[in-house]
Design a protein around this nucleic acid. Structure first.
Lengths: 219, 219
DNA sequence: TCCAATAATGAGTGATTACTCACTTTTAAA
DNA sequence: TTTAAAAGTGAGTAATCACTCATTATTGGA
């Protein structure tokens, strides 16, 4: 805990715009992320968080009305960053300008989300575990991801299909294959075998090539 | 809850061999599965389980020493069934006899696990959610899956590679692609969009074809 | 029919929970 | 330096937690 966590600086930068966080508040968030991701939200107690943060328990409730509000203050901002690569207005133009082939597009997305997962891993873990149990999280996710990202992703797939670079497959199915494969890599890399000797470049190539072979037309 | 849950009959059959369960014990297990899968283990209380089961709270602890033991009695037997398709002695012989092509093998595994997921969904959900927080679960899973299944799966992949039916890829990477794609389908089908209008045969075909195109050599 | 074993009960246990509040300390602008 | 607001404290609260145990109800073999 001596080094500054990368997700923390991001979190600070986001909250900064609204209001400055005190030193103790930062300690609280740090401790909460650590304990939530270790024991789950329901399995963590505010007294334990306060202890690890070196703070009185009452201080937590100065800054957050409830334990749940503390959870949301950690997880919600991450969602915005999660969908960042798709948060552009004219998506098709970006595609045409920057990504002439499916491969270059896939590689960009994969590498980008790989770094994202590396940075925000503890919070992503909390998010994945808690989303089935909190309506607020599910609805925020639906709003942001389903509406914002899905349509743009389908558009990208249709774009490549029209250019004969992706086989004729319903876009939801094609997207499912892409996300499944990339998520499968990320989950294996960071959750199942985080301490393995990973040759990331090679594995990224395997992953991208698998998707490419699976989705592009055969000559 | 008026109809008999499919996972329950399986659970009964397994426990039957050791000891008979009383009516109240069955009610307890039913209620526990429902509540655990809805609220998570840490978020569920024994009093709530007792209430839903129509049983005194003390009755739970007559049959299970602790709340955690109740959890394990539900989740552990499922793991045995999870790896059932791979629990044969001479795996290569089965491959050669019954599955001449990668496609027939993949289709068999996918359809088989699709039915498994349909049957045991609530317990699988509990399992996935709780495995990061309970050492006993993790170790049981490692023992059974890592040792029993992984080696056999690698063997199957190597078998097909030797016959030129799967491209030259490290077996762990190839297996990751296969599992990611199938899991991605099952998670989408039962967790993300369980109420969608699914044309399962078509989706299974998409899934299998994607894996085939991704892993088989191009002509 | 009787009886010992097993099943079931529910009030009671101390520990822990999220959260409150009267009070003290720190901060920063005037 | 003064002072009001903000930050921080920690003992205290009622509620709930997993679990116990003395007691009662039910069971099935002799």
């Amino acid at each position: 805990m001596s080094e500054i966590e990368p997700w923390l600086t991001e979190l600070l930068r986001l909250n900064d715009e609204e209001e400055k966080m005190t030193d103790k508040q930062i300690k609280i968030v740090q401790a909460a992320v650590e304990i939530f991701s270790e024991k789950g939200f329901a399995g963590s107690s505010t007294s334990e968080i306060a202890q690890k943060a070196g703070v009185a328990e009452g201080t937590i409730f100065r800054h957050y009305k409830t334990k749940k509000e503390l959870l949301l203050s950690i997880v919600a901002p991450m969602m915005t960053k999660l969908i960042a690569p798709f948060a552009v207005k004219d998506f098709t133009k970006v595609l045409e300008a920057d990504y002439p082939s499916v491969e270059s597009f896939l590689r960009a997305v994969t590498l980008n989300r790989l770094e994202f997962a590396r940075k925000h891993f503890p919070i992503i873990k909390i998010f994945i575990h808690e989303i089935p149990f909190h309506n607020e999280l599910r609805e925020q996710f639906k709003e942001k991801v389903a509406v914002q990202v899905l349509e743009k992703a389908y558009k990208a797939i249709r774009h490549f299909q029209e250019h004969g670079q992706i086989i004729d497959l319903p876009p939801p199915a094609a997207l499912r294959m892409i996300i499944s494969t990339i998520m499968g890599f990320l989950i294996t890399r960071f959750l199942l075998i985080p301490d393995g000797e990973w040759q990331e470049e090679k594995e990224v190539d395997y992953t991208i090539n698998f998707i490419l072979y699976g989705l592009t037309p055969r000559p």
